[in-house]
């Protein structure tokens, strides 16, 4: 009987160890792609054991339904419903509106540059003057979220 109990205990310990190993592997695979971005919560996490996984990293200004609605309400007039630069004003502007699905261009622009152009307008950022400034219409958080939405549309990051 005693041998059976000892065997049971060993089985339980090995099961717990297996779970710990599996969990740490999931955490790593999640955090890797977004390793360059700051996590939303910077407060130190309680350390339970030495091999604990790092906390999952989250975009500071996540793209929400509100972000998509804002894009449709304002930006889509020129940049198009799907961000392809073919909005209703596109045929009439001196410089074609930017195609937000085009990674070749957008990966050459940093998030800060995109934020600056949305907030202060194209002219202030050395780009097309047709792009008005939105800094009195949208707050900084919304503009940051719009930058992240553009990153979603182009499926790209700043190189």
């Amino acid at each position: 009987m005693r041998r059976v109990e000892v065997l049971k205990n060993w089985m339980m310990i090995s099961l717990v160890l297996l779970l710990v190993v599996l969990c740490s592997a999931c955490g790593e695979s999640k955090t890797n792609p977004k390793a360059s971005e700051a996590p939303e919560i910077s407060a130190p996490q309680p350390v339970t054991q030495d091999a604990s996984p790092s906390p999952p990293r989250v975009k500071t200004h996540p793209v929400t339904t509100g972000t998509r609605e804002t894009y449709q309400w304002y930006c889509a007039q020129c940049h198009g419903i799907k961000g392809k630069g073919n909005g209703i004003n596109a045929p009439h502007t001196a410089v074609p509106p930017r195609d937000h699905t085009k990674a070749e261009y957008l990966e050459t622009r940093s998030d800060e540059q995109l934020f600056h152009v949305i907030k202060f307008g194209g002219l202030a950022g050395g780009r097309a003057p047709c792009m008005p400034r939105w800094g009195h219409t949208l707050n900084d958080d919304t503009i940051h979220a719009l930058v992240n939405y553009i990153r979603e549309l182009c499926e790209c990051d700043y190189l």
């Binding site: 007039q77 020129c78 004003n89 009439h92 502007t93 003057p129 047709c130 792009m131 008005p132």
Partner: peptide
């Protein structure tokens, strides 16, 4: 109107030859 504030992107105005020019939203 056109360059500093980009109004022309959405509003139809005229070019130097008085022809309609500008956005339609």
């Amino acid at each position: 109107f056109e360059r500093e504030y980009g109004c022309i992107a959405c509003h139809q105005s005229v070019n130097l030859a008085y022809q309609p020019r500008g956005g339609v939203s």
